[in-house]
Amino acid sequence: MSCGEHHETDCSEVLSEVWLFLDHECDEKRKALLQTHLDECHPCLEQYGIEEHLKALLARKCGGEHAPEELRRRVRAHLFQTTREGTVEVDVEVTTTTTTKAD
């Protein structure tokens, strides 16, 4: 993604690291760079807002449980690789259940 404006940090790079920013998992220098970009770039700020709301929703609904560190590492690596490649494939399986009421 690119907003079409010139920024010190590319939009796609910022968005690939937005979860690290939200989770306070980047160093102060990187945090400042990402914050500057978000302050200057409305499309990225909007996407950041969506991610921030998603994170809050997950925290509320998951009861604050934390995933094991190995799982977090693997998910983070997969997300990083996927966002760097610029492709995301999602398989969704829809199942329907029909219930009938007996008279």
Rank of each mutant, 00 (worst) to 15 (best):
R84K: 11
H66T: 14
V75S: 07
K29W: 02
C44W: 04
G86Q: 04
L45H: 13
T9F: 12
C62P: 01
E40C: 02
F80P: 00
D103T: 09
E8D: 14
E52Y: 11
E93V: 11
T98I: 04
L45P: 00
D10Y: 09
L15W: 02
E52F: 10
G63P: 05
T100L: 15
E25P: 00
G49R: 02
T100I: 05
E17H: 03
E25D: 14
Q81R: 10
V18N: 05
C3M: 07
S12M: 09
H7K: 02
A59T: 13
G63W: 07
H66Y: 06
E46H: 06
F80E: 14
E40N: 07
K55D: 09
C3Y: 10
E70C: 02
I50N: 04
A67E: 09
A56C: 02
D10M: 05
L33S: 08
T96G: 07
V94T: 03
V94S: 04
Q35I: 08
I50M: 11
L33D: 14
L15E: 13
P43L: 04
D23Q: 08
H78Q: 10
W19F: 14
D27K: 01
F80R: 13
G64F: 10
V14Y: 03
A56R: 13
L22D: 09
G64Y: 07
D91N: 05
T97K: 10
R30C: 01
L22Q: 07
K61T: 10
D103L: 14
A67W: 05
G64N: 04
T99A: 13
L58Q: 13
